[in-house]
Simulated scan of single mutants.
Amino acid sequence: MTPALRLTDLHSYYGKSHILQGVTLEVGQGEIVTLLGRNGAGKSTTLKTAVGLITPRQGRVELAGRDMTGQPAHRIAAAGLSLVPEDRGIFQLLTVEENLRIAEKRGSPWSLGDIYRIFPRLEERRKNGGGQLSGGEQQMLSIARALLNGPKVLMLDEPVEGLAPIIVEEIVAQIRLIREAGVPILLVEQNLAVCSQLADRHYILELGRIMHCASADEFRSDPDTIDRYLGVKA
């Protein structure tokens, strides 16, 4: 089966700095895959390169077998690759419902009713301004806006960073529901407990190179590799 997303031998630069040095990974249909690594490893650069915010000097980006390499970001987004950035990117002065309605895409399989089913907090806060939401609620709104675009693959950059444990649990449950609805997910996240709960497979990135790939079971049973590349005891 053709992977939902395949990145092959990506090389990306910031100015003269060679950040991605041959990144290759894939996300299968119905999978949650995590991209792990220390700060500065190139995780966010990988997501930005995939979605066209950075143009790779070498390599290939394929979405459901379609070559998207070098396409502008708006075309890649329209083709179905959605990135929820670390800064969330919601409209602070618009209400929750206004934020959602301007994200609706004709032909998307996701409706406002679907969003409120997965994110009941957003329905409760639908008349509140985006700037009045807690950090966790803003994260939910950012993910919900991406879903309304009908993504073929959803990429999440640090979705639970800095959030209270009870909100983390809520977002983990919501990510599971999104995957159950058939949306493959590429997840960048520092919280290893969250990654272990969610992911089918894990990639570890170090200095712009994929150094390790493992299934969920292999990852859990290999604390030495986790400590070597991520600097934490499992």
Rank of each mutant, 00 (worst) to 15 (best):
I166F: 11
P165Q: 11
S12P: 03
L156C: 13
K16W: 07
L192K: 08
S108F: 09
R75G: 03
L112E: 02
G107Y: 04
L177G: 08
C213P: 00
L7P: 02
A146P: 09
I166C: 04
L35T: 08
W110N: 02
L5H: 05
G28Q: 14
M140G: 03
R209I: 11
P159Q: 14
A234W: 13
L156E: 08
Q174E: 15
R145M: 13
Q92Y: 15
L147F: 05
R66S: 10
A103R: 09
L100F: 10
R117I: 06
R121K: 15
I115F: 06
R125H: 15
I185T: 14
P184V: 06
R121D: 13
N149C: 06
V194G: 02
R121L: 06
A146W: 08
T69L: 03
L198N: 09
S17H: 08
F91Y: 14
I226Y: 01
I118Y: 04
V172D: 03
L207M: 13
Q139S: 07
K105P: 04
D114W: 02
D222V: 09
F91C: 10
P223C: 07
E137L: 08
I204E: 01
I210S: 01
L187T: 01
R176F: 03
G136Q: 11
H18Q: 02
S108Y: 14
Q197H: 13
R117F: 06
D157P: 12
R75A: 08
M68W: 08
E206R: 11
V27R: 05
E137Q: 15
T225G: 00
A181K: 15
